[in-house]
Design a protein around this nucleic acid. Structure first.
Lengths: 343, 343
DNA sequence: CTGTTAGCGCTTTCAG
DNA sequence: CTGAAAGCGCTAACAG
C-alpha cells in the first residue's frame, strides 16, 4: 500500500497491480484478458484491486504488443448528405460488436485529401478499410497499397473497377431502368438524364439503365437530353435551365442522385414550371430529405443499413481469415423504386 | 542489402533503415522526426532509403513512446440530422491542421451507450474530447473522469451545467426570443411551443426565450400551449394533433428544433390546415432540409462551422497548455433568424 | 495455475 | 553531430 502513496498523476498499470498484490505481471495480464487458467481467488483479488484503483487498460500498448490496432478505417467523399451517415452508423454498430473502433475520414470529393487520408490510415495501422472513392479518383495507387500490405479493403457505392476486392453495391442499372420505365409508363416521352462523372461506375451503370429503358420502349435516346456533370452544385442550375429552354424540352428528368434531383425541382419551379405537370423528376438514393420536399420526390431507395452491415461483415470476414483464404465477392443489393408526387 | 531479401511481409522499421545504412537508430529517428542536429548527408541518405523502401511510420509505437495518442474524441448523440455532420466536419479540419486524428462516436441518444463510448475514448487514451450529451444524460460521472484524469474536455450544444469546463453554445435564449417575437409581430396571438426534455439546458433556455417574448408583448403564457417532449419522433404527431384540436387552438408553433418543426408542418398539412395561413411554424438550427420543404421553414440558424472550429480551438488550447493554466471560457455564439414562408 | 523472459517500434535521456 | 541504453505498457511463448 505504501507504493500507492508515491504515485501521483501516474496512470496505474498492470505492473502496479502485480506489485501491489505481490504476484507476477503475467498473471494479472491473464485475468485482465480473460484467460481461463487463473485461480479464482487470484482472479478476484486482481479484479477487485483493478476496480478499486480504477485501472484502465492502455489500448495503445495492447495494440503495439499484439500488432493489431483493433481499428478499421472508413474513407468516404462526404458526410453531409444522408446516405453516408446512415451507412457509417451501420458500419459502426457492426464494428463495435467486434470490438473495433472506427476512424472516419472525409475526402470532400478531393483526390488529394483521399490520398492523405489513406496515409493516415496506414500510419495508424488500421486492420482494414472500407472506402467509397471521390468523384476525382482515377489513380488507385494509394488504395492498392492496402492490398499490397495485406490490409483488407472493401469498397461500397463508389467502387474501384480495377481492384479485385470485395465490394458492395446496389443494382444501379436495374434501379435506373425501373425509374425510367416508370416515367415512360406514366406517359413521358422526352426524358432527360442528369448523369454523374463518367469516372464513377455508378454514373455509367445508371446511364446504361436509363438507355436500356428507353430502348425497350422504342424511344430513341437524344444526346441533347443527356448531360454529364461533376456534382458541383452551381452547375445544376445551368444545365436544368438549358434543358428547359431547349426548343424541344424534356417532360421528365432522371437525376443521378437525390441532391441533384432536389435542386432540379427548385430550379424548375423557379422557372415557373410545375413538377410533375410540366416536368417530372426522379432521383436516386431516397435521401432523408426527399420525402419532405414539395413535391415529394420519386426516387430509387438504397438499403443503406444493409449496405453498411454487409460492407463491415465482408471486411471482418477478411480480417479474421488468413489472406490466402480471402474471397472477393461483389454483393449487389436490391434497390426499390419509391413513387411519390414528383412523377 | 542482403538483409532486405530475408524480410518478407514484415513492415520495415527504423531499425531496418539503421541497419541498412549502418548508422544508429537514434539518428534515423532524428531525421524522421525532423530533429535539426543531423548531418545533411546523413539526412538525405536516410530519407532516400525510407522513400525507396516505402517506410511507413508506426503511429502506435510513437503514441506509446510519447504518451500521446494524437487523437481527440467526439461524443455526440447522433449523426443523422445535418447539424452534427457540419460541426464534425469543422472539428475534423481543425484537428487535421494540428496533426490529430478524430475518433467519432454516436451515443444514439442513449445514456448507456454514451458511458460505453466514454470508456472507449479512455481506453484509447484520447488527448481530449469534445462532447454533446444525450437527452437522457443526468449523471455525469463518466465525463467527469476526463477532468479527473487531466484529459481536456469541451462541451458544445448540449452542455453539462455542473462541470466547469470550456463550452461553446449559441444564444438559445435570444434565438428563441427573436423567433417568437417575429411571430408576434406578424400578428400571431396564440403561439404554442414544442419544447425538448427539461434535462437539456437548450430546452430550458429556448423555453425561457419563448416566455420572455410573450411577456414583453403582454401575451399571457398558456400552459396548454407548452408541450415538453423527449425527441421521440412518434410523439410529435400526437402532440400536434392535440394542439390542433384544442377548443382554442394555436395560430403558430415554435418548435425546439428543425426536425420537429418539419414533422409538425407535415402533420398540420395532413390535417387539412395550411402553413402559414392557419398555423405558422418556426424551427431552430437551420437544417439543410429546412429551405427545401414546402413551405420553406422559418428557423433560427446556428453558426455550425464556427461552433466546430471554436470547440476544437478551445480543446487544443488546453491540450497545449499545462492543466494548471486551463481556463474555462463559455463561448456564446450568435444565432440568426431566417424568415421563410412558413411564418 | 504461475513466473520469467523477450520483445512490439519508437523516443529520449545521457554520453561522447 | 552521433551512438548506446533504457523504457512506454502490454502480450506471448516457454518453463515450471
Amino acid at each position: 500500500m505504501i507504493y500507492l502513496i508515491c504515485m501521483k498523476n501516474h496512470q496505474i498499470t498492470i505492473f502496479d497491480l502485480a506489485r501491489e498484490l505481490n504476484i507476477s505481471k503475467s498473471t494479472v495480464s491473464r485475468v485482465l484478458t480473460g484467460h481461463p487458467n487463473v485461480h479464482p481467488d487470484t482472479r478476484k483479488r486482481v479484479l477487485d484491486l483493478a476496480e478499486k484503483l480504477d485501472y484502465q487498460r492502455n489500448m495503445i500498448a495492447i495494440q503495439l504488443a499484439t500488432q493489431q490496432s483493433k481499428t478499421i478505417g472508413i474513407i468516404i467523399p462526404e458526410i453531409l448528405s444522408s446516405y453516408f451517415p446512415y451507412v457509417i452508423a451501420a458500419i459502426q454498430e457492426e464494428a463495435h460488436k467486434e470490438g473495433y473502433n472506427v476512424l472516419i475520414s472525409q475526402s470532400n470529393e478531393s483526390y488529394e485529401t483521399e490520398v492523405t487520408n489513406a496515409k493516415v490510415m496506414l500510419d495508424n495501422r488500421v486492420d482494414g478499410v472500407i472506402v467509397s472513392i471521390t468523384k476525382e479518383t482515377l489513380n488507385f495507387d494509394h488504395l492498392k497499397v492496402f492490398q499490397k500490405k495485406g490490409i483488407p479493403i472493401v469498397f461500397f457505392n463508389r467502387v474501384c473497377n480495377e481492384m479485385v476486392v470485395p465490394k458492395v453495391i446496389v443494382d444501379d442499372y436495374e434501379g435506373a431502368f425501373g425509374a425510367v420505365e416508370h416515367l415512360i409508363l406514366s406517359g413521358r416521352k422526352r426524358i432527360a438524364h442528369l448523369s454523374g462523372p463518367s469516372s464513377l461506375a455508378i454514373s455509367v451503370k445508371r446511364l446504361n439503365g436509363y438507355l436500356a429503358a428507353l430502348k425497350k420502349h422504342n424511344i430513341p435516346a437524344d444526346p441533347e437530353l443527356i448531360i454529364s456533370y461533376d456534382f458541383s452544385k452551381e452547375k445544376i442550375a445551368i444545365y436544368v435551365n438549358h434543358l428547359i429552354n431547349l426548343k424541344n424540352p424534356p417532360d421528365a428528368i432522371f437525376a443521378i442522385n437525390d441532391p441533384t434531383a432536389i435542386d432540379t425541382i427548385q430550379i424548375i419551379k423557379k422557372n415557373g414550371l410545375r413538377v410533375p405537370e410540366d416536368i417530372a423528376v426522379v432521383g436516386f438514393s431516397d435521401d432523408y430529405v426527399s420525402a419532405l420536399i414539395e413535391p415529394p420526390l420519386t426516387t430509387v431507395a438504397q438499403p443503406v443499413r444493409e449496405i453498411g452491415i454487409t460492407a463491415a461483415q465482408l471486411l471482418f470476414d477478411q480480417i479474421k481469415k488468413d489472406s490466402s483464404q480471402w474471397k472477393t465477392p461483389v454483393k449487389i443489393l436490391k434497390t426499390k423504386l419509391i413513387v411519390r408526387k414528383s412523377s
